[in-house]
Write a protein that binds this DNA or RNA. Structure first.
Lengths: 120, 120
DNA sequence: TGAATATATGAACATGTATTCATATGTTAT
DNA sequence: ATAACATATGAATACATGTTCATATATTCA
């Protein structure tokens, strides 16, 4: 005979106690979405390159484009994404806009990322 | 009169010295792609939830599906992605497969992520 | 052996996203 | 005012990716 099934998951419940314990420790949905969104921003090689470059020193859009061998528009679009995620900030000097890191955590996050990769 | 332009970026070079200094400090292309790929894996809310759950204790596929209110197939697909990224490992006990974290760095990376979000 | 069940996997579909192109905006210098 | 130029932005396109559905695989138990 069949036991009760959770509608959505398509299988019988195996460890109800585990599920309840873990559920009680889970952060709010929104928090988890926010972290995921942050990592989504870090999950593109162009943006990683930009951030890594800005880790060294501030640069203008044109410098970044030249450094990465990409056109200005692509860089500008990506800088907007990074700006929205509060990962970079900018200052304007005449026509030129200089971008720099907005948060030291980027360095630590990259550090941990590299360590994980080395950990194979 | 026009100065030389980098073919790709569509603008004149402004700070050639900066570009060269930064370029000399950039890691290998492949390394940067690998970090981006790692963060790409972390950049999905379902996978974030799974990892956060496994941060508490090991769970079988069915438990995870029930916890997140998703079907078994979706979870299984995502676990494969996490496995490929060496973020989770598994042990088989009969029909049941128990997943757990493969690397302590996940905790630190999440930690830094949360701190960045708080830093607004 | 056959039924039940836990997990894995391939294909299809829908959605999201990075880049390019064309063009707009704003600043400097003539 | 006009030209040159650095940057921003909207639309279009191409590609990647998450979920679902159907089904396969593997294990346990009667």
């Amino acid at each position: 005979m069949k036991k009760a099934q959770i509608e959505t998951c398509g299988c019988n419940i195996i460890h109800e106690d585990v599920i309840e314990r873990v559920r009680s420790e889970m952060p709010q949905e929104e928090t988890l979405y926010d972290v995921a969104d942050l990592f989504k921003v870090l999950g593109d090689s162009t943006r990683v390159k930009i951030l890594y470059a800005l880790l060294q020193e501030e640069m203008c859009v044109c410098d970044i484009a030249a450094l990465l061998g990409m056109n200005q528009s692509a860089i500008s679009h990506q800088l907007r994404v990074l700006k929205q995620a509060r990962l970079v900030k900018f200052k304007k000097e005449g026509k030129v806009v200089y971008y720099s890191l907005d948060d030291e955590h980027v360095k630590n996050i990259f550090q941990q990322g590299f360590e994980h990769l080395a950990h194979k």
